[in-house]
Simulated scan of single mutants.
Amino acid sequence: MQDMAGRKPALIWAVNLAALLLVILWTVPTAGLFVSSFRDRDQISATGWWKSLTTTEQTGFVRSGTAEDQRAEGDVFVIEGNVLAPDQSLLGWGTRAREPAAYRPGETAELDGARLTVAEDGSYRLESDRPFEMRRGERIFVTTGSPPDFTLSNYARVLQAEGIGRAFMNTMTVTIPATIIPILIAAFAAYALAWMEFPGRALLTAAVVGLLVVPLQVALIPLLRLHNDIGIGKGYLGIWLAHTGFGLPLAIYLLRNYMAGLPREVIESARVDGATEFQIFRRIILPLSFPALASFAIFQFLWVWNDLLVATVFLGNTREQLVMTGVLRELMGSKGGEWEILATSAFISIAVPLVVFFAMQKYLVRGLLAGSVKGG
């Protein structure tokens, strides 16, 4: 017993560390996506999101003015300009690509018969004792620093120009009914299988369990042909029915196991008092089964929200019909280099599932565990 007691704290620490690691692995990429969605392309290309609150260093070059821009100051010919963009600070500068920060602001470099000085504010002065004859300006390499900058323009662009706003509404239109309808149907079916006596109840329960292992891919084409034959075609009604059919086996299984574990005395007392089956279902079973209903709602909502295959088959691929996953797929092909657009679109896509999960996650474990250990 002492050995077992001595191992228990070590096992607890191992479990806690494993859980913490999983939380970190899940949270860090989400946080990075959120931060990147507010950064512009230059910042994302220059530094990682973990450096978003620090000054961003960038190296590039600008060209000075040409011979046409020179002016005479006594016996000296001068070309002036500025190497900095707004909100940038000069960290160093140079005249060769291998040493882009060879000189500090305010220092002077000797060129071929000329002298170049770049001040801290980015203004440069190129002077020579002879007139300049160059048609192209001298290259001035600069290492600049940009302060942290966050913008909402990424969200405005993806919601309007890139079609994410329309796709968001399409996804909500698909997901909400496709979550509510199977819950309503499954709740009635689960109550009947758990508490009502009728011939073939055991066979129906076995059939529901068997349907859990049937992959939805084998039913896509036959179901689409059926929709076309009965006149539904491609549209919201068709995809609602498809998601309902694919989600019902799991919903009935979870809710039936949960309802079967509810106290029998409460049900029998209600029947003795003259309550009908519908009254028992509405006033007793549904309130007590809320954790199981919520746990399935999370699963169904997340599955439908992140679905691409069923939406492509039963809804279509036109711009007006695309859901969020469809638009993200197109953006990956057409905007593969614009990371700020992809990050913003991806975070919009996961924002609603995150809200739903955190709002209802306290019921998730209760519903799943109760449905797995109780049966009738």
Rank of each mutant, 00 (worst) to 15 (best):
V272W: 03
T344G: 08
L184V: 15
G137W: 08
M134P: 01
L111H: 09
Q160T: 12
L91Y: 09
A18V: 12
S89L: 02
D69H: 11
Y191Q: 07
N257P: 03
L91E: 08
F188E: 03
G333F: 12
L84V: 11
F141I: 11
T171I: 08
L315T: 04
S146G: 07
R256H: 07
P287C: 04
L302Q: 13
R41L: 13
I348F: 12
M196W: 01
S89M: 01
R271N: 07
W195Y: 12
L90E: 04
A292K: 12
A167I: 04
L11W: 06
A19L: 15
L216I: 14
L293G: 01
G235L: 04
G92Y: 11
L226F: 15
R329H: 15
G65E: 02
R135Q: 14
L203H: 08
W50N: 00
D307Q: 13
I350F: 12
E107G: 01
A19Q: 06
F278C: 02
D129A: 12
A5V: 07
V158F: 13
E110F: 04
L254D: 05
G74W: 01
L364G: 02
E68D: 13
L33W: 04
V208I: 11
A190W: 08
G235A: 06
F141H: 13
S52E: 02
T66I: 11
E68C: 04
M1G: 12
G337M: 13
D69S: 14
V373T: 13
E162S: 11
A19Y: 09
Q70P: 11
R63W: 09
S123E: 01
G261V: 04
N154S: 00
I140R: 12
V78N: 09
Q217W: 14
V62E: 13
L286W: 14
F168E: 01
I176K: 03
Y103R: 10
F281C: 00
W93Q: 14
A97Y: 06
L111Y: 09
D75H: 09
W49H: 02
T143Y: 05
D87A: 14
V266E: 09
L203P: 04
Q43S: 14
K51R: 13
A346P: 07
G65M: 06
G238Y: 01
A114L: 00
T117Y: 06
E107V: 07
P222V: 10
V28C: 11
R125H: 09
A311Y: 08
P131Y: 00
R104Y: 02
P100A: 02
V83N: 12
Q2N: 07
A311T: 14
L302W: 03
K362L: 00
P148V: 10
I24F: 10
R139F: 09
G247N: 13
L53I: 05
R319C: 00
A19K: 02
S153V: 10
W49V: 06
T54S: 14
Q2D: 06
T244S: 03
S45L: 02
L17R: 04
L255M: 14
W240M: 07
H243G: 10
